[in-house]
Design a protein around this nucleic acid. Structure first.
Lengths: 146, 146
DNA sequence: GGTTTATTTAGAATTATTCCAAATCTTGAC
DNA sequence: GTCAAGATTTGGAATAATTCTAAATAAACC
């Protein structure tokens, strides 16, 4: 990522955080950077390990706090696909997740722009967002199990 | 549930279990009954508490084992909507879940028969099933927060 | 600069789930 | 029916994931 792009992201992060009543701190910035560096789906533990490289004194509690703040201010998504640890995803484009039941990897899958259609909620229910998770085998695992 | 209906369900359960290579045990039967009694979305812990009423010696490990067997043989679904404990759902009709962000209750929402359309998986990926979770406020909580 | 409030920190506590080894049950072969 | 093999159950220990706590630090505001 270029320096300019990087700065742009930081500004967006700062804006989003303060809009939701959070402060823009070095830790939150760093956790966000770490998430953006590899656009995969790390657990809080994995984020912690990666974050420590550049910021050795950061604590696990802070990582959870930062991730929560990022999720709440709309800069990251929280992904729950199985019984294991919650994963975090910095991809805010409209997309859903493919979970490989064999290797447990999570993949982003683009979604046609409109939400799921034809679903009728009970009266009074207010939907804020939706999550689609597809389970199955990724290309690699599907190939091996043949 | 009438005695006849009950027997029918047991037979179906027995069949499904053995098809997947599992044995039909009193514990599995009871855990299934407990799930069917209140068609809500209990955690393993809640299932354990309910199961103990009629079967006081059942252990937590067995409850996990039974729930896993039920999920694997297609008699229950595993529901992961948030960071909390996994929930279990005996409703095998085509449906998705509404998760109330305020009271944390889970509701079943009927789904139009066809799966999510217009999603293109990468080459080689094999989808087995999909889960849709809608987040928002249930009628009760939406009313209060007004 | 001082006050207020949010954030960070380390570690303890809690919650959720899995693992283990011994006892028990099921099943199928004889 | 009896026996061996394998699956299941059990209680408890172990692990993993997350939250809580209280003190120290940092940011925002006047």
């Amino acid at each position: 990522m270029s320096r300019v792009e990087h700065k742009k992201l930081d500004e967006q992060l700062s804006r989003q955080l303060s809009t939701s009543g959070f402060r823009f701190t070095p830790q939150r910035q760093h956790v966000y950077d770490v998430l953006m560096e590899e656009r995969d789906h790390p657990t809080a533990e994995e984020v912690f390990i990666r974050a420590k490289h550049e910021m050795p004194d950061i604590s696990m509690a802070t990582v959870y706090n930062c991730l929560d703040a990022l999720v709440q201010c709309g800069m990251a998504r929280q992904v729950n696909v199985d019984r294991g640890a919650t994963r975090f995803c910095p991809n805010m484009r409209e997309h859903c997740h493919f979970y490989c039941d064999s290797c447990a990897k999570v993949f982003d899958i683009d979604l046609p722009s409109e939400g799921p259609s034809g679903i009728t909620l009970p009266k009074g229910f207010k939907a804020a967002r939706f999550e689609i998770a597809i389970h199955g085998l990724c290309a690699k695992c599907a190939g091996q199990n043949k």
